[in-house]
Design a protein around this nucleic acid. Structure first.
Lengths: 360, 360
DNA sequence: AAATTTTGTGTGTCCGTGCACATGGCGTTT
DNA sequence: AAACGCCATGTGCACGGACACACAAAATTT
């Protein structure tokens, strides 16, 4: 039951610690037959490297560059960061440190700058939310040339060199939204989808979600419920936004389901009258504070949550598994699409926040 | 930026490593004023013990005794075990080992025997699912006398000596079920709650869930929808079970919502005719295979999931946080009540299964 | 054949901490 | 005052592995 050490192997193989070390770590300079013998003995004895001793002796540090949107530019991004911190508490003793390279979610130039900074800092890996898909692919290539792997969260970019992705499946989240509407929709009711934002960022997310919604409706209730699609990117201008909303209301007296394609449901919902709240079924994304508030006030009916804390947590853990524990990691890890309603929201708020975090 | 070590502190304080060691680990035999000086320096420098070196030098192992139902007696229990394994992969290098003490879910004597075995093995902690509430409390006392703390999952027992609990809030899961029924219930429709099982085990769960359901109905639709409560413990006898079900069907022509209070929805649902599936709204618990199957076939409408894999995972992590990292852990950690439907079930199946587990 | 390089192997030290033991000063006992 | 014991402190080794260096034997060059 005692742990097998390099010394044990050396003794049995009739060689010195150094030779075993060379074999175990593939440092070469070992006669092939001796190497084979040592490999056999090690595997027979079920040798496992003592990570403690290894980390201690090598004094190695793993550096991860985190390139994600600045939480100040979009509060959603506090949550992945929280998951990252939680994970770090647990594994920092393996010698893992992170550097943050924040960028304003709405500024491509900042993203590009920080991506370059990150690559120039020569980290062991980059953990990023590649919200600017096209540009991300370029930097992915650049990092690749420097042998820096990409771990992605939240936004999926399809490229063989991405080590892994943790996040939601956008198509299915749209599909799920469709299902949620049909819990209560009646024939003739209209569904309105609202995309508050610049289509260029997260374009893929957006179109996938709509495709999923469309798919659900087509396969289940094709002709009974018309669907209308709207976009509006000046959502920070309250007056214009209100005007936009009133226009839609006027234009769609039979509107019943409202689908917000991103986290900004709260920006429109705050214009709701009490009657509006009763009339409409609202589905939105992401458990950010204003959305939670409106959910509790029955103004938003469903929030589809993609567990952003877990995204950050798993991003780090994937690194640990791959680089420290040398385990294979799944390339695509879709998180559950949590259906959050007033009656279960509280449990989502606290979850995952406490099991790895120091108190007091 | 370099890590502060005991040696650094010793040098600055003008003492030897040994003295610093005595202060850091509270081994006594240090002049009070020297002690104060060292404490101050350590905190000023932000000293953190190197867990790697510590674990290596002390050769300490932490042993956790796992006392949970045998997965062979109830397949639900495979999932917590999976979470435990996942967590272990990640932290076993801190010197954590576990021993399993399985008991048949339906046999109190086995539970008692294994609990005694576990305590006699003198572990550093016991991680248990105290399904037999009353007996658990006795063993809790016994363990307490041996200074063995209890970490509980899945079943909440209220006692100050429990180190922490990870699991669901039963009351709220019943409340949530109420809400799910009212997505589609109409006035006059009846709700039937079915408890397939011995009330004595998990009695607390059962009554809490019903209380939650009752609470929802009373505060929202008090008089419109009658609720009926049934129990049946010979659920393994198919003939009798069918008879029981047909009797209920005959007795409740206006039955619409069916609430299964535990994971055994599948045992009744398999008797459903196609017409039954269309007519009834079924809410049950736990994502075990037969339930998932019936969910996909539209015979179960909602599964309330309490993420059992995460329960096991967090159980271990709580131990690590408390005993290894010396962090405070929250006494009560309610997991989210996941609403699982056909359209999002697939993502729950795979989740958490892969991010810490070796492949291939 | 001597000189040089290459190749394979062994040894010593260090990583930061835990712990057993040594040491030396001081107060108490006889 | 010598003998003893106690307390505060210092020292050395161990934990398992990483890595630099030493060194002998073999292979290559001159």
């Amino acid at each position: 039951m005692k742990k097998v050490t390099i010394k044990d192997i050396a003794r049995i193989a009739g060689v010195s610690r150094g030779t075993v070390d060379r074999v175990i770590n593939g440092r070469g300079s070992v006669t092939p037959e001796v190497e084979q013998r040592i490999i056999k003995i090690a595997s027979d004895l079920g040798y496992e490297k003592n990570l403690m001793a290894s980390a201690l002796a090598s004094n190695r540090v793993f550096r991860i560059a985190i390139v994600t949107p600045d939480p100040n530019s979009d509060s959603f991004w506090m949550q992945p960061r929280e998951g990252i911190q939680n994970a770090l508490e647990l594994v920092k003793h393996y010698g893992i440190i992170v550097d943050y390279f924040d960028f304003n979610l709405f500024r491509k130039d900042e993203f590009e700058m920080q991506m370059e900074n990150a690559i120039n800092s020569k980290p062991d890996a980059i953990l990023t939310a590649p919200t600017f898909t096209q540009e991300s692919l370029e930097y992915l290539e650049m990092a690749e040339q420097n042998n820096i792997p990409f771990i992605t969260i939240n936004t999926e970019i399809h490229h063989p060199d991405v080590l892994c992705y943790v996040g939601q499946n956008s198509f299915n989240s749209g599909y799920l939204a469709g299902r949620l509407f049909y819990l209560r929709l009646k024939p003739g009711d209209e569904i309105i989808t609202l995309n508050l934002g610049h289509t260029l960022a997260n374009a893929q997310h957006y179109s996938d979600k709509l495709a999923g919604l469309r798919e659900y409706i087509q396969t289940h209730h094709m002709t009974e419920n018309p669907v209308y699609w709207y976009e509006f990117d000046q959502f920070l201008d309250e007056d214009k936004l209100l005007e936009f909303w009133q226009d839609i209301k006027a234009r769609h007296p039979r509107m019943k389901g409202i689908f917000f394609t991103n986290s900004r449901a709260f920006r429109i919902v705050k214009f709701f009258s009490p009657e509006d709240s009763r009339r409409y079924d609202v589905v939105g994304f992401d458990m950010i504070d204003p959305n939670i508030q409106f959910l509790k006030e029955d103004m938003i009916d469903f929030i589809i949550n993609q567990n952003p804390i877990l995204q950050g947590y798993m991003g780090i853990m994937n690194f640990v598994n791959h680089f420290v524990l040398k385990k294979e990691v799944k390339k695509i890890q879709y998180l559950p699409l949590d259906i959050v309603i007033k009656e279960n929201v509280d449990f989502y708020i606290d979850n995952f926040r406490n099991h790895t975090v120091a108190k007091g």
